[in-house]
Design a binder for these strands. Sequence first.
DNA 1: TATTGTTATACTCTATAACTATA
DNA 2: TATAGTTATAGAGTATAACAATA
Lengths: 151, 151
Amino acid sequence: MLEKASHPETNADAEPINALENLIGYQLRRASSKLMADLARALDRHGLTPSDASILVLVRDNPEITQSEIGRLLGIKRANMTPLSASLENRGLILRRRMDGRSQGLILTEKGTEICAAAYQAIVNHDRRYFGYLEIEERARFYSTINRLWE
Amino acid sequence: MLEKASHPETNADAEPINALENLIGYQLRRASSKLMADLARALDRHGLTPSDASILVLVRDNPEITQSEIGRLLGIKRANMTPLSASLENRGLILRRRMDGRSQGLILTEKGTEICAAAYQAIVNHDRRYFGYLEIEERARFYSTINRLWE
DNA sequence: TATTGTTATACTCTATAACTATA
DNA sequence: TATAGTTATAGAGTATAACAATA
């Protein structure tokens, strides 16, 4: 009988069986949460959460974009966008510019532009660190398999 | 000028630019959250969360496994396992069996065995629905690319 | 009527610290 | 000393409902 020293007094297997490990969806989820934790750590060095950074990049590329539009693109509810943009504004990273009576367009401040550049670089580095080793062809295949999940 | 009708009065692009979409990590995260939401919906029909179902499957295949061990396998902290197993016990799906003074092994009740079977089937169906169309070779390649993220 | 932004609120997940009892 | 289980607690993230102002 092969048994690990950890629980020799029980009849538990040396290595527990995890039937879910054979499922792609399960592996995908675990991979995603590992990646997210690592990205969060990298962005934390710039004082940002992944949400913060995603918002900054969207504002950078789409000046005067509204909160609602950002929420729609990132899957964040309007109600939850309010404290996020307030926090970015309080830290001097974005400005709110009145567009019409009900909308306000967001733009990056100078400081926001700097931090966004650093954060974007961190995100790209992170992606390269995990997927940069892939051959172009394999990378394209992987990307397309993921994208087909929306069809 | 091609512009969508949504914001014709601003200089916003018809389709906002999202630089993150080019990154594999970003796509992976979005895919994972879509999959999780869908799986949660499927399991909710059996009165289970994804965590509930994962625990049941682990208990099914590893009778008398401890809470701590389950937590280690699923990435759930010991402190957060307590209410999860209590809830499963209160619903009559698992039993706690004293192993030694400090450990208690978990086993499925008859009801737990039934619900676990249904839940496992739902999980497998879910995986098949999203990834079943993949050729065996493509499936293996995708699986291996995900798994290499831990090296 | 529909949309933007806001407030209040609640629920889930996750994280840490501290405690007990046992090994 | 290390481990199993527990409690309390705090912080994200996410969800809904309701409201005012505006389109």
